[in-house]
Structure formats: structure tokens, C-alpha cells
């Protein structure tokens, strides 16, 4: 299988403080990776660096995505190239309806690919289909992006956007945080429905419970800015039983 993403010796800082201290990670097309680790280990930093958040600075290393130097691409171009982040804390954008927001996003991607903007009928049909896929209430679609949404609605909206944009590599950053068990199941089902043989996911989570629904092929433990252990799905169970302390002690 082809390498979709290759992270080599990645170091990154925020406000001058080094958070990532040499990450190496390879994701092949079709794989689901889980990245687990205690709070403060650098999980969210890794996802933010991948999508080009301007607050983070890469000081060393490289990221190759689809054979391209990812670090040279603007955040919007990374998105157009199929990189998607389901945010841990999706922001509210008052006054901008989800419909208008998604139309701008979908058409920006089409423009990048040299296609004409989607016509309104076609677009609304796509909205309906994708909404059904993730059980997003039609009322929500007419509201402003994330404004006044519950935690569960925000996460469902993230997965809806993921469905609309059909990413090649999706990063789910603590998508389970703040969700009750029903919301978690709906979100996870949405993610599973969107899975194709040629798309990959990185699931970042603190707990194992999301991984009961989204089955990873490979599990990594991130600790203190480095990946300290990589194994198969059985690692999830081991973490569940033993917690993170043994990792901390070993490193």
C-alpha cells in the first residue's frame, strides 16, 4: 500500500515552547490509526500542526502528504488536498448559516480542482443526503455555524462537514470529548459510513470508548511529544486495564 502521510522527526513549538519532540508516523491509504496518550502529551498539537494552525511553528522535520511537502501548503490548500480536522472545540461563527458556509467550502475546493461551482439544486441535494448520513437535523443546517449548539450537535456538525468535503485523510481530535454514549454512537456511525478503502483516519483520543466503535488498525501512544509505543488494536485493551502510568514510568 502507498504511503498517504509520512511524518519524519517532527518538532513543533507554540509560544517558543517545544511540544512535539521528534514524531515519526506513517499512514497508508485505507488505514485507521489511533493516537492515544495522557493529557498534555501533544496530541492536539500534532493535529493542529498537520492542518497548519498559524499559532504553531515547525522547527524541525518534515511531513510528506500525497508525495507533497505538506508544510509548504496554506491551510486552505491542505483542505483542498483532502485533509480534514474534526475540531476538539469547534468555534461559533454567528450570522453564517451552515448552508452558506458549506457552499463556500465546497465551491472553494471545486475551484481549486478547476471545476465550476456547484449549482444550487445539486448542492442542496448533496446537503440533504449527507445530513441524513449523520442524522443532522434540518433545522440545524439553517442555523449559524455552531452558534448555540450543544456539545453533541457541534461534533455531529463536524462529521457532517466531513461528509460534505469527502476528505482523504481525516483527523478526529478528541471527537468523543463531551459526548454522552448515544451521541458518541451516532458520531462514530457517521465516521464509519464515510470510511472508504482509499481514505484514512487518525483518531486522537484519551479514552478507549470511541475505539469501541471506530476500530483502529494501528494504535500509537504519544507521550511527552514522542510516539513511545506502536502496536495493534490489542494495545487499547492494555491501556484500558493498566492506565497510562506504566507508560510514564517507562519513559
Amino acid at each position: 500500500m502507498e504511503n498517504l502521510l509520512e511524518i519524519k522527526n517532527l518538532h513543533a513549538t507554540i509560544d517558543g515552547k517545544e511540544i512535539l519532540k521528534g514524531i515519526n508516523l506513517t499512514v497508508k491509504a485505507g488505514e485507521v490509526h489511533a493516537i492515544m496518550g495522557p493529557n498534555g502529551s501533544g496530541k492536539s498539537t500534532l493535529s493542529n500542526v498537520l492542518v497548519g494552525h498559524p499559532a504553531y511553528t515547525v522547527t524541525e522535520g518534515e511531513i510528506i502528504y500525497k508525495g507533497k511537502n505538506l508544510l509548504e501548503l496554506a491551510p486552505e490548500d491542505r483542505s483542498h488536498e483532502g485533509l480534514f480536522l474534526s475540531f476538539q472545540y469547534p468555534v461559533e461563527i454567528p450570522g453564517v448559516s451552515i448552508t452558506n458556509f458549506m457552499r463556500a467550502a465546497v465551491n472553494a475546493k471545486r475551484q481549486y480542482q478547476g471545476q465550476e461551482p456547484m449549482n444550487a439544486t445539486e448542492f442542496l441535494k448533496m446537503m440533504r443526503e449527507k445530513r441524513a448520513m449523520v442524522n443532522l437535523d434540518s433545522k440545524l443546517a439553517n442555523r449559524s455555524v455552531n452558534e448555540g449548539f450543544s456539545g453533541g450537535e457541534k461534533k455531529r456538525n463536524e462529521i457532517f462537514q466531513m461528509a460534505m468535503l469527502e476528505p482523504t485523510l481525516s483527523i478526529l481530535d478528541e471527537t468523543d470529548s463531551g459526548l454522552d454514549i448515544d451521541a458518541l454512537r451516532i458520531v462514530a456511525e457517521g465516521v464509519n459510513k464515510l470510511k472508504r478503502d482509499d481514505t484514512s483516519s487518525i483518531v486522537i483520543t484519551h479514552y478507549q470508548r470511541l475505539l469501541d466503535y471506530i476500530k483502529p488498525d494501528i494504535v500509537h501512544i504519544l507521550y511527552n511529544g514522542r510516539i513511545v509505543k506502536t502496536a495493534g488494536p490489542e494495545l487499547v485493551m492494555e491501556l484500558e486495564e493498566r492506565g497510562y502510568d506504566w507508560i510514564k514510568n517507562e519513559n
Partner: peptide
């Protein structure tokens, strides 16, 4: 940034 990440 949220908009940027969505390609806008």
C-alpha cells in the same frame, strides 16, 4: 482558521 481548514 476554522474557515481555512474547511478550504475557505
Amino acid at each position: 482558521f476554522y474557515c481555512n481548514q474547511r478550504g475557505i
